[in-house]
Computed example of a mutant assay.
Amino acid sequence: MQDRPEELPTQAQPEAQAQAQQPLPLPRPEPTPGPTPGPTPASAYGSPPVYPPAQQYAYGQPPGFPPPSGGKGTAGRAVLWAAVGAVAASVLWAGGIVVLGPLGDDPDLAGYRAKANLCSAVDYSALRSEYAEEDNAPTHNSLKHKAIDQSYCSISLKTSSTSSYADAYLSVEMDLHKTTDPAPEFTAVWSEYGQRYEDYEVEEVSGLGDEAYLVTEDTTSGTGTSGSRAVTLAVRDGWMTYQMSWSAYTSSYGTTTPPEVSEVSRWVKTDTRSTLENLRSD
């Protein structure tokens, strides 16, 4: 006959049951070694902040909270943290829905079509009043994707055929945003462009698309023999964004000086209107 296990005394049974109900503390995993720190990459807006490598706390308590230590009230605290976690997950899920926004919106491309060779649609007739020599080999490239179509063109501007190098440069870019409305970011970037560099001035332009901004810079000295001048016109029409940019260094002009920013601004506005019309009709 086998010996029966000794039964616990009656008065000790509640204490044994309480101990059995207490959750055992889960082992804290060892931190995963991170990569060897390297130099922080340069950034146009300054070096990004350096954060320590994240520690993994799978199934354990997050940093800052003590691990379960047993005793009265442990089960209640476990239920409390589970409830807090559920609420946090619900908030994050709701936040994710807000960030993503409604899906399936049809892009408002305002009749524009992507061009494999944007240079073929760029009209810079007004600028040609200063730069008579035509660039017979402008640079262009393009990108097509389900999220965005991009077209780019770069043109060298010469005042005459005797110019050995370009006297100024013209670049044009058109983006067709097909999944995301670019309006908020476009407004933020171009209306506040002067925050980046104190030499730039920003002016809102009416009569071009849904919104347009003229950004100018003039760092030439009083004699006009050093520095540079630049003009950029940025336009948003629906989910299409466009920029035409002109820039020139006084050193490229030799004994003469580049045209005034106000004059180039008029030329760029005129050429932008005709170029946008070409991009809709082609």
Rank of each mutant, 00 (worst) to 15 (best):
Y197I: 09
L170C: 10
T159L: 08
F186V: 04
S163F: 10
V189Y: 00
L170V: 08
S191W: 03
N136R: 13
Y152T: 12
T159D: 08
S171A: 15
E198D: 14
D135Q: 02
A168C: 04
T159Q: 14
D149S: 03
T162W: 13
D149E: 03
R128W: 03
S154Y: 09
W190F: 07
Y165P: 01
A188I: 08
F186R: 08
E201T: 11
K146N: 11
N141K: 13
D135H: 02
E204T: 09
S154K: 13
V205T: 02
Q150S: 01
C153I: 02
D167E: 14
N136V: 07
W190H: 14
E201R: 03
D167L: 13
L143W: 00
A168G: 09
M174A: 08
E203M: 02
R128G: 14
I155E: 05
A168T: 07
D149M: 02
S129L: 11
S164T: 14
Y193R: 12
G194P: 04
M174R: 01
S171Y: 09
A188F: 03
H140P: 00
E173P: 08
L143N: 10
Q150D: 03
Y152I: 07
S142H: 06
T159W: 12
E173I: 01
T179S: 02
S161H: 08
K144C: 06
Y165N: 15
L157T: 03
D181S: 07
S161G: 13
C153Q: 04
K178Y: 00
A147E: 09
S160F: 11
A183G: 14
S163I: 10
E173S: 11
S154L: 15
Y131T: 04
T139W: 12
A147H: 10
T180Y: 07
S171V: 14
Y169N: 15
M174G: 11
D135S: 00
H177W: 06
T162D: 09
A137N: 10
L170T: 08
Y169H: 14
E173C: 07
L143M: 09
E192I: 00
V205P: 09
A132K: 12
V172K: 04
A188N: 10
E203P: 05
Y197K: 12
I148G: 10
L143C: 11
A168D: 06
Y169G: 14
E133H: 12
A168Y: 06
S163P: 12
D135T: 04
E185L: 11
Q195L: 00
Y165I: 15
E203K: 00
N141W: 14
S160N: 15
Y152K: 08
I148W: 00
S161D: 14
S151K: 00
E201G: 13
A166V: 11
D181H: 07
D175A: 00
E185K: 11
V202D: 06
Y165Q: 15
Q195T: 05
W190C: 09
T162K: 15
Y200T: 01
V205E: 03
T180M: 01
D199Y: 01
D181T: 08
A132G: 13
R196E: 05
E192G: 02
K158H: 12
A168P: 13
L157C: 10
E173T: 07
L170D: 02
E204N: 02
R196D: 01
L176F: 09
N136H: 13
A166M: 06
V172S: 03
K144F: 10
G194W: 01
